[in-house]
Design a protein around this nucleic acid. Structure first.
Lengths: 330, 330
DNA sequence: CTGTTAGCGCGTTCAC
DNA sequence: GTGAACGCGCTAACAG
């Protein structure tokens, strides 16, 4: 490994000068600078990022801690983050907490120990470790889910409104017994989407029946199981609102497996974009989120906070959009 | 930030002893160790990973450089990597090269500068930077695609065989003019899957028609465009083999949009698992890869190489499996 | 078993 | 505009 001293010697200057050339901060005599650059080229010098980070006690890395790498929602969001980060001179490393507070904790610790420049995180609910980041003074932006009692920048969507829209649509479509499969109680998104569902029912003068509500895990299997369980009800529901993409897919799988016709016997509407939703037969009615924008916005906020750490925390809410397709029209 | 010296002072020992306790390497008197641990607790000491890395000139991080974070194939693979890494005491950071050699280059540079402990990479074809890693002596495992002229550990699937299987199945199903949409020429997977397609045709005594072959980008749009182009042929193909998951979806979208009935007018078989392939109507025939295992194997190989850097490079090939569904049965 | 010493490679004072 | 010197926080030698 060639160090800054090797370059300095080879160019006949001091290490300080090489450092200046590398970082382009203070001005260096053009002739010298050229000599240094040439020496760097000949020796194939690569600055040691670790040493630099130690010295500056700062890295140029952002950690993005998401809760399910298998969910296209998060991966799409990451693209938005990446594009902004790139331009701002940061690299993005992705960490998958898998909805597990313990795993999340490990990544938070790593981010802290590795002196990451910033963190974008979708907290894994109650046991989340975001506060540790905040207390340590690390720039943080929370995405997708509201953290409890921590003042941080957040980027969310209008979950309640979106859920209300979807449920309202099912009501208008003429469904009578509309069920809801929402996510884990500990997650704000699950609670908000459930609330939107309830609000839509009440707005239509309907009764909210707790026996038609299920709390699942935001995954395919959970959606499947919840749907299966709902179908055992008597009378059974004639429509279902699923609170995220994977659970919607799970619910549909269950209905297909049981030979229940969509949308004639059971109507379906889901929250969240579903890749190739239009290829599934029937095509699926969804509440779409501006996923890429979500990531972009979070990244923008993070960049701002890094340059201006004392700025008061801000909350951005982006809007969802209902896409009516075949699964909810009978 | 509390340092190891703060802890040492507080516990009345030397920094070296604290270091020993933290790393549990050489043995320390239990009483002392306890005192140190207590001091660490009271001061909320977190070891500075950056300083440690500088000293050891090694991190505990693996970089996984994939070429499309939007492709479920790669994200599923990453789960396999993660599970192994976790157990071996490494953290995984994910980098998305987006099939762009320049972006890949940036991440490779970062991995080098940051002294990553190892790298798992799916090279972005011709302009790949894997050799830089190898030359620098960084443990590397190449996944999914064959690198050219570099001796590294690799984990692949039997692309040619799988493609042959799928194409052979289309032939047996009675299709006459079978087209192929494969990936970029520069990628070994694209070439191998194309070869499998050709081999199946020849094995059945059919002629390989170049006008029925398209090179696309391994993405949805590419598959769509290629299919659209193929449909303009006269006579048009009556079946298509698409060389990866996203392109299969794209091709199907195109067929649906143009009102071409699957599998009656055009049969479809695709390489690679497709999430909810069984929900799409008609359900899609696919050649499934052991995605998780692929990641797991790569991680295992990487761990081995790290502990035993001089071991000769090995190549592992995993097997694919044909899943016949409705899209190819007429 | 424990403490002392000496860097890892770099950026940043501070003189000149 | 440039160089010498110091130290970021830690761990690997070496003595003791």
């Amino acid at each position: 490994m060639t160090t800054i001293y090797d370059v300095a010697r080879h160019a006949g200057v001091s290490a300080a000068t090489v450092s200046r050339v590398v970082n382009g901060r203070s001005s260096v005599d053009p002739a010298l600078a050229e000599r240094v650059r040439q020496a760097m080229g000949e020796l194939k010098y690569r600055p040691n990022a670790v040493a630099r980070n130690l010295r500056r006690s700062q890295t140029t890395l952002w950690a993005v801690i998401i809760s399910d790498i298998g969910n296209p929602f998060f991966t799409a969001m990451v693209r938005g983050v990446e594009d902004v980060a790139q331009k701002a001179g940061f690299s993005v490393v992705l960490c998958n907490s898998d909805e597990d507070p313990a795993k999340e904790g490990k990544y938070v610790t790593a981010a802290l120990n590795d002196q990451m420049a910033g963190v974008i995180i979708s907290p894994s609910g109650r046991g989340t470790h975001v506060n540790r980041l905040v207390e340590a003074g690390v720039p943080v932006v929370v995405i997708d889910r509201l953290p409890r009692g921590v003042a941080v920048d957040t980027v969310m969507v209008d979950n309640e409104h979106g859920a209300q829209l979807a449920t309202g649509h099912l009501i208008e479509a003429g469904y009578e017994r509309i069920a809801c499969v929402t996510g884990p109680r500990r997650l704000s998104t699950a609670a908000q989407r459930l609330r939107g569902y309830q609000r839509a029912l009440r707005a239509a003068g309907r009764k909210v029946r707790t026996e038609l509500i299920r709390f699942a895990d935001f995954r395919e299997e959970g959606g499947y199981a919840a749907m299966a369980d709902l179908l055992r009800q008597d009378p059974r529901p004639d429509a279902v609102f699923a609170a995220n993409n994977l659970m919607t897919v799970g619910a549909v799988e269950c209905l297909v497996d049981q030979g229940v016709r969509i949308p004639q016997e059971v109507g379906v509407a889901g929250f969240d974009n579903i890749p190739w939703a239009h290829l599934v037969r029937p095509t699926l009615t969804t509440v779409d989120q501006p996923t890429y924008e979500l990531g972009r916005t979070a990244a923008l906020l993070l960049a701002e906070r890094i340059t201006e750490p004392t700025r008061p925390a801000s909350s951005v809410t982006l809007h969802t959009q209902l896409h009516v397709r075949e699964s909810s029209r009978r």
